[in-house]
Design a protein around this nucleic acid. Structure first.
Lengths: 116, 116
DNA sequence: TCCGATTGTTACGGAAGCGTTATAGTCATA
DNA sequence: TATGACTATAACGCTTCCGTAACAATCGGA
C-alpha cells in the first residue's frame, strides 16, 4: 500500500534525480514552478489561478508569473472560462506532457539504481 | 537492490513532496540549489567550488552564488583550504543538517502515504 | 440597474540569478 | 624569482522573481 524508504535512501534518490535534471541543462525550475507543473498534469482539471494559489499557499501573482514563464516555454496554456469569464482555465500541452513524462522516467530510473 | 516505482507513482511522490515543501513556506530553492545542498550533505567531503561546478555541469559563479545564498541562511559554510589556499572547502552546518534531515522525513512520509 | 465581491493581471521598487568576462590570490615549476 | 596555470570571486548588464498594492473585468444578488 506504500513505498518503504529509509531517510538516507529518500535523500539519495532526491539527490540523484535533481542532479540528473541539473546536468541535463534544461531550465532551472524552482520548487514552486515544479509543483505548479505537476499539479496541472497530475490532478484533476479544471485548474485555476485561484485554485493553485490556495493549494500551494502562495499569492496569485506567484501563479500568474509561473504560468507566464511556463507558457512561454509552451509547457502550459491558458484560456478563459466560458462559464465564468473571470476565471482562467489552465490547460496542458503536448510539450508539457512530454516534459513531465520524461521527469517520471528519470525518477523511476534513479529509484531502480538506488543502492539499499 | 532497488526501489520499484511506476512512472505515475514517481511523479505523484515528487508532486506530494514538493507541494509539502512549498506549502511549508520556507525558501523557494531552485533545482540547482537543492542539488548543491544535497551533494554537500550526502557525498564524501571535501567539497570545492570547482568540484561542484564540474559535477553539476555548471559554471563556477553559479556555485559561488548558490553558496552565498545558502551561506546567508546558515545552511553551509566556507573556509579556505589550509593545504592549498586557492581552494575553498565547503562545510556543513547544524542548521543545514537539520534542513536536509527534515527533507528526508518529508520524502519518507509521502512515500509511505503513496497510493499504489 | 447598481454595487459589493471575486477573478486574474499589471505595476512597482527591490532582490537574486544569469552568463560572460575580468581580477586577485595562490601554486608549481623552470 | 619570474611565469604560467589554477582557484574562487567580483563586476557587468540583463532577466526573472519577489511581495504588496492597485487595477480592470466579471459576476451575482439587492
Amino acid at each position: 500500500m506504500s513505498v518503504s524508504l529509509r531517510p538516507s535512501e529518500a535523500l539519495a534518490l532526491w539527490h540523484d534525480v535533481t542532479l540528473d535534471l541539473v546536468r541535463e541543462g534544461g531550465h532551472d525550475f524552482s520548487s514552486r514552478q515544479i509543483t505548479i507543473l505537476l499539479t496541472i498534469y497530475l490532478e484533476q482539471p479544471p485548474h485555476t489561478v485561484r485554485g493553485l494559489a490556495a493549494k500551494l499557499n502562495v499569492t496569485k501573482p506567484v501563479i500568474t508569473r509561473a504560468l507566464d514563464t511556463m507558457g512561454a516555454l509552451d509547457l502550459v496554456t491558458r484560456r478563459r472560462d466560458e462559464k465564468d469569464m473571470r476565471n482562467v482555465i489552465i490547460q496542458r500541452t503536448v510539450k508539457g506532457a512530454l516534459f513531465v513524462e520524461k521527469m517520471g522516467d528519470v525518477i523511476v530510473a534513479r529509484a531502480k539504481e538506488l543502492k539499499r
